[in-house]
Amino acid sequence: MSRAQPSRRERAMVEPAEFRSYYGRPIVKEPAWEQPDVPLYLFLGGTAGASASMATMARVSGLPKLARVGTLVAAGGSLASVAALIHDLGRPERFLYMLRVFKPTSPLSVGSWILAPFSGLATASAASMLTGRLRPIGTLAGGAAGLLGPAMCTYTAVLLADTATPAWHEGRGDLPVLFAGSAATSGAGAALLLVPATETAPARRLGLAGAAAELAAGHRLEHNLGVVSETYRGGRAGTLLKAGKALTALGAGLSLLSKRSRVAAAAAGAAYLAAGVCTRFGVYAAGVASARDPKYTVVPQRERMARTGSPGQ
């Protein structure tokens, strides 16, 4: 063991040694992003993406109120998402550096190239809608944003998974589904909260589909990643994710009553949105926890080596 000075106090702290480490210090660096900036960025982007797609479909389906709310949420959400990112970067011009190159190997580059046009299109669409000017262009922009919307919902999952942060990288199969589901419920939630009951049926259905995906993916993250799953179950992440699950279920349940009750609809929407926030913060927290404890770096790698018998497989 590397704990060479077993003072009495320390000895009590040492867990049964099933892995070795350098004084229990982390191996990988925890994500350097600011909280709440980046979890919010994840949440807002997803909500905006789902909303934009809903808005487009609503426009096609002749649901003007839903279309209006979706368009506004897409624009507002994506602008806030950019703002959160810029806040994290520290200075506005630093966001422009993101567009210096296009790098397929960098999900942040790809994401920036999704986020930038998306927020532009969504904003244009909203502006046209609010001012009544250039309506055809606005509609076109809204449609394009609607097409980009699903990408907005899931690219952030790759953004997280494409790191050495054990909870995220090990969860790379489930995070896109989780984020897709969570974006869908959040988008639906915004609609349930803001759109009169007459036009919320699609949102209700989207919410239910999203909730199902989200709960399923969340369950897999919490149980199928070996020792790393601990980070989704315990600590701050566990609390947040449990709350997220409860709120999602609550939102789904309430949404079933939303046809009759405006209050239930609004409550369902708020629950979905709160669930989205909890889920993103929870996933972020799981990542941080998994980076802080070398166990989550060492044990999966050791297990993989034992499984494959060779390095790097």
Binding site: Q5, P6, S7, R8, R9, E10
Partner: peptide, 12 residues
Amino acid sequence: PQLAEETGLEHG
């Protein structure tokens, strides 16, 4: 460690 034990000294 033995002297620490004997005198109650704590690492750090």
